[in-house]
């Protein structure tokens, strides 16, 4: 196993990445899709507004990007901190 201080730094970096991605996750689904929908009502798309698109499709596309971005970020962190398999 890697030494203690290196693994602490690795875990801190992981938590930081998770926090950033969770903010994006929340804003693009609960935010644009539900809570902020009235604010986006002026942006029209295909017979409805941007909030409807985020709720039915946009959020899912963002989720996909988040998971692969997180996986790539963690692969990089694993190597940097010498904790990869």
């Amino acid at each position: 196993m890697a030494d203690k201080s290196s693994s602490n730094a690795y875990w801190k970096a992981n938590i930081r990445a998770i926090q950033i991605f969770l903010v994006i996750w929340f804003v693009c689904s609960f935010g644009f899709g539900i809570l902020l929908r009235p604010m986006l009502a002026g942006i029209k798309i295909g017979g409805t507004d941007l909030g409807f698109w985020f709720a039915q499709q946009g959020s899912i596309l963002v989720f996909l990007v988040i998971i692969f971005a997180y996986a790539a970020k963690m692969n990089k962190l694993d190597r940097e901190h010498g904790v990869e398999e």
Binding site: W25, S29, Q57, S59, F63, I67
Partner: peptide
Amino acid sequence: YLMGWTGGYV
């Protein structure tokens, strides 16, 4: 349903 059943994977 759409957001809930996919967002869980994140």
